[in-house]
Design a binder for these strands. Structure first.
Length: 565
RNA sequence: CGGUGAUUAGCGCAGCUUGGUAGCGCACUUGGUUUGGGUCCAAGGGGUCGCAAGUUCGAAUCUUGCAUCACCGACCA
């Protein structure tokens, strides 16, 4: 490709709306352009990268025995009503109707369509297991699109679905997919980690996320500093503190200070206090009485996922309003405490290990000190409802927790039979009986990977693409071609030779000054530059510049092809 | 949806307080100059100041409404 024919579109200045570095560089290097909130146009350079990621994903899926298909992005609402997700999915599901007023959705994912297809196509256990995938545009009407294509509303995703007669078979395919994902991210040269994950709204039992480690990531990942253990913080278990709880030694006292003031103005340590949060319960009692109290150590944070998975707690987790808090405890939320509450009390393991602690007194402006479980507050349930923090013992039993930020680029689930049951997806088993299938599903955010790769591979000059996904393998940069016939001839000859050999080469034939060309290629992140100039032509050499290492060396023109063997 | 802020040339911004001729840098066009790291000089093109209504002789500027975009929370590949 010649730059004179190419939509280069680089920007010198950073558009003000771009927050993270990958978004800035994607705009500046001319990979994408903003169309509307969460919607982007992919320019030639960006599309080249996207296609490369896509192809690596496709190759590894095929190697893992998955069949590529393509499903419609527009899906009939009836299917979603059948699975129950028409009601469950919420406003993130973009709904539309056609000219006949029939309801449709823009597919955020394709479980319904694929399960219906497989239900119709498969009849016998002999056809199992089956794994199918597609690489398709998805649409999710995100509440808050941000960070460019990292969280767009329309995005490219690889989604695979596997079908099995039993869980043992699903487990096997799950492992194959796990390995395939590792291969994919290794080929993409990304610093990634598989982490144990929550299954979220898709439902199911076992699940891993694949995270690219980056400061700009939106998830907190808990690692062990002594083993392979890694889990999304949503899912990382906070172990109960070691040892016996200290024996009560203080008497219960009432203090005329809010808990917050008590911590600030006295020597009471926040780690020896508990905070109490009232949330909606999940029982059939009349709504005015249906609440649960969650109790955490003062310095800990509530883990909403863990909390809403506890029976009796309403999912999704819903905080009580100020009025509801007053109705439950006759005080403001800042003076809440576990003692004497009439609602079920769920206490985090760490908070339950305290003795002689301080807490709100359920009376505005008052606290208790010297509080002890059992003696002062007996009827409680102990559970793990907090986020792990750095330094906690790792749940794997080895080492302690370290927390890093990650960008979720892949997610694999063991779905079970939720969709198969709803969509009546079954085959005849060996005994001739109808048997509902069990499913796995496996997603990769293809367009998000492009952004994640930039987050991990850039410097002050621009993008430093991993070789496997660089838009061009090499660029030819002639010095002052307009003035030197020798330079022009050499550059043209090199270009022809490389193009004929099928190498993705960008020939910068613009009439630009060297600085402009160098800056553009560095911004775009082309791994290799061949600089053709009068300076080295007497010896029949060109300069080779490596974008990643910054190394410069001289290379005989006759040897250029050897770079690509 | 809630909270905050923004909207003036393709991009980055000034002008608004105190109403009166729409400006700067980059980019773009033309001519010259320069040519191994975003040269320099000169001339030029490009704007219903987000939209609508109001106040006024007169609105980018004041008032009201709406839209869009971004940031902080819930969602997720």
């Amino acid at each position: 490709m010649r730059t004179s024919q190419y939509l280069l579109s680089t920007l010198k200045e950073t558009p003000a709306s771009a927050e993270v570095i990958s978004h800035q560089l994607m705009l500046r290097a001319g990979l994408v352009r903003h169309l509307a909130s969460g919607l982007y146009t992919w320019l030639p350079t960006g599309l080249r990268v996207l296609k490369k990621v896509e192809n690596i994903v496709r190759e590894e899926m095929q190697r893992a025995g998955a069949n590529e298909i393509m499903m419609s992005m527009v899906q009939p609402a009836d299917l979603w009503k059948e699975s129950g997700r028409w009601d469950d999915y919420g406003p993130e599901l973009l709904r539309l109707s056609d000219r006949h007023k029939r309801d449709f959705v823009l597919g955020p994912t394709h479980e319904e369509v694929i399960t219906k297809l497989v239900a119709n196509e498969l009849n016998s256990y002999k056809q199992l297991p089956l794994n199918v995938f597609q690489i398709q545009t998805k649409f999710r009407d995100e509440i808050r699109p941000r960070f460019g294509v990292m969280r767009g509303r329309e995005f490219l995703m690889k989604d695979a679905y596997s079908f099995h007669l039993d869980d043992a078979c699903l487990e096997k395919t799950y492992q194959i997919m796990f390995d395939a994902y590792c291969r994919i991210f290794e080929r993409l040269e990304l610093n990634f980690r598989p982490v144990i994950a929550d299954t979220g709204s898709i439902g199911g039992e076992k699940s891993h996320e694949f995270h690219v480690l980056a400061e700009s990531g939106e998830d907190d990942i808990a690692f062990s500093n002594a083993s392979d253990f890694a889990a999304n913080i949503e899912k990382a278990e906070a172990l109960a503190p070691q040892g016996e709880r200290a024996i009560a030694s203080q008497a219960l006292e009432t203090v005329e200070l809010k808990l917050e003031r008590l911590i600030k103005t006295t020597d009471v340590d926040i780690k020896n206090t508990v905070k109490t949060i009232i949330v909606l319960g999940d029982t059939d009692e009349e709504p005015t009485k249906n609440f649960v109290a969650l109790v955490l150590r003062g310095d800990h944070q509530l883990n909403e996922i863990k909390a809403e998975n506890i029976s009796g707690v309403h999912a999704p987790l819903t905080l009580a309003t100020d009025e509801q808090v007053s109705a439950v405890a006759n005080c403001h939320s800042s003076s809440l405490g576990p003692k004497g509450l009439s609602v079920p009390v769920i206490v985090d393991r760490s908070a339950a290990h305290l003795s002689d602690f301080a807490c709100g007194a359920n009376q505005n402006g008052y606290s208790f000190t010297g509080v002890n479980w059992e003696r002062d507050c007996a009827d409680i349930t102990v559970a793990d409802i907090r986020n792990v923090v750095e330094g906690d013992p790792s749940p794997c039993g080895q080492g302690s927790i370290v927390i890093k930020r990650g960008i979720e680029v892949g997610h694999i689930f063991q779905l079970g039979n939720k969709y198969a049951q709803a969509m009546n997806c079954a085959v005849l088993n060996e005994g001739g009986k109808n048997q509902t299938l069990t499913m796995g599903c496996y997603g990769i955010g293809v367009s998000r990977i492009v952004a994640a790769a930039i987050e991990q591979n850039h410097d002050q000059y621009g993008i430093k693409w991993p070789k496997a996904i660089a838009p061009f393998q090499v660029a030819i940069v002639p010095m002052n071609m307009a003035k030197s016939a020798r330079v022009k001839e050499t550059a043209e000859a090199l270009y022809e030779q490389l193009s004929n050999a099928g190498i993705e080469v960008l020939f910068d034939d613009r009439k630009e000054r060297p600085g402009v060309m160098f800056a553009d290629h560095e911004l775009m992140g082309t791994p290799l530059l061949l600089v053709v100039g009068e300076r080295n032509l007497d010896t029949q050499e060109v300069e080779l510049k490596n974008r990643i290492t910054g190394e410069k060396s001289l290379l005989a023109i006759d040897n250029v092809m050897s770079l690509f063997n």
